[in-house]
Design a protein around this nucleic acid. Structure first.
Lengths: 205, 205
DNA sequence: AGCGATCTTGCAGGCAGTGCAAACTTTTAG
DNA sequence: CTAAAAGTTTGCACTGCCTGCAAGATCGCT
């Protein structure tokens, strides 16, 4: 009875809340004290659940800090195959990352905190965005499909890992800037530099 | 008295031996069973030392599998600053990695095993060669010095991370090939692709 | 042989992460 | 409304990584 308009159901709402609370508590505490000065127990306590429950939501302490990678992954892959066919695979990736940029700027505060945490705890950096092995495989498969190549061909892997490195670099630059530049500009600049073959700045003919 | 020709001394020789034995045992066991089916205790037992001693040599189980990164790091940095000044930073890195290629081909068997282990346990991949945060900082500093830029400028970081991604990709391709290609060729091809701006294969004008 | 420096080892302990089973809560069905 | 079903939280026990500390073994030098 009562209001039945909540399509997700009470159960799902609670799960979302708990997940968000754990993630937020993890970010806040690690930002304050550093990654290995915070225990899972403390994070769980701050989110009012048991430590065991933490591991029902995240397979490791790190994952609670890195955002929702499965979602990002699907969005990215979909955008890669949907990109205009006249674009090169690298340009398709560049375009796909534009949407990630948009998503990040929509959650600006959370992402700035997350990136500050990652910058302060570099062991997290490689697993950001496309660093996860599963995520990378999905992207590589999408690129390979787009090019009509075997995934065993080296090019899809090369393009994917390079684009991931470019984007990660742009993110790290963004968070180190006082706010003088937008993430969009930094990403565009980094991708453009790679497209130009990475000439030295000002030294190109 | 007696033979004094051994400059390293007995002690250093033993240390080298122990380190090598631990590394070899780790590689062999993890290749056979997988990363998390091998305990540090088992590795230490296979090398005839205590588990506690393992951690006197390597700060983590992973490090025993990844080779001697501090050495690689210094070699790379030295080669970057020593590269002909007319080369772009990216080409200097390409050249520097040529020496790493040479070192790897000199230890071909060990490196093939190591790369097979890394391919089978992808959590190790990001920390290979320049994935370590410390290593990357050293390389970025060398590149920045070469360009006469602040390390806070984004370009050194971009070039370094991209080159690292390129080289890691080449390594992974190499180990997946039956042996049809040399690492040198794969590396050269991957760097050339990036220098050309990552066009699609065969689709470039 | 003996002294100092270095290396190895055992021990105690903290923390991450997993499996299992009991308690609890929401959903569904009668 | 009630009771079963399905899903969630929690405690407990356990393995394994990793660290600090102090005692003992080994090596290099005189």
């Amino acid at each position: 009875m009562t209001s039945d308009q909540s399509r997700p159901g009470l159960r799902d709402r609670k799960k979302r809340q708990t997940r968000a609370a754990l993630s937020a508590a993890a970010l806040r505490l690690v930002a304050e004290r550093g990654l290995d000065q915070v225990t899972v127990e403390e994070i769980s306590e701050a989110a009012d659940v048991s430590a065991r429950t933490f591991f029902n939501y995240f397979p490791s302490k790190d994952e609670a800090l890195l955002g929702d990678q499965p979602t990002e992954r699907e969005v990215l892959a979909a955008r890669i195959v949907a990109a205009p066919p006249e674009l090169s695979a690298f340009d398709a990736l560049r375009l796909a990352f534009d949407d990630v940029v948009e998503a990040i700027e929509a959650d600006r505060e959370v992402w700035l905190l997350r990136l500050r945490v990652i910058a302060a705890n570099p062991s997290l950096l490689p697993r950001l965005i496309s660093g996860n092995a599963e995520t990378e495989q999905v992207i590589v498969a999408a690129v390979a499909a787009r090019l009509g190549l075997d995934p065993c061909h080296g090019h899809p892997t090369l393009v994917t890992t390079v684009a991931g490195a470019v984007f990660r670099t742009a993110l790290m630059q963004w968070v180190e800037q006082p706010g003088t530049t937008t993430l969009r500009e930094l990403t565009a600049g980094a991708f453009a530099a790679v497209s130009a073959g990475l000439p030295d700045p000002y030294a190109a003919t």
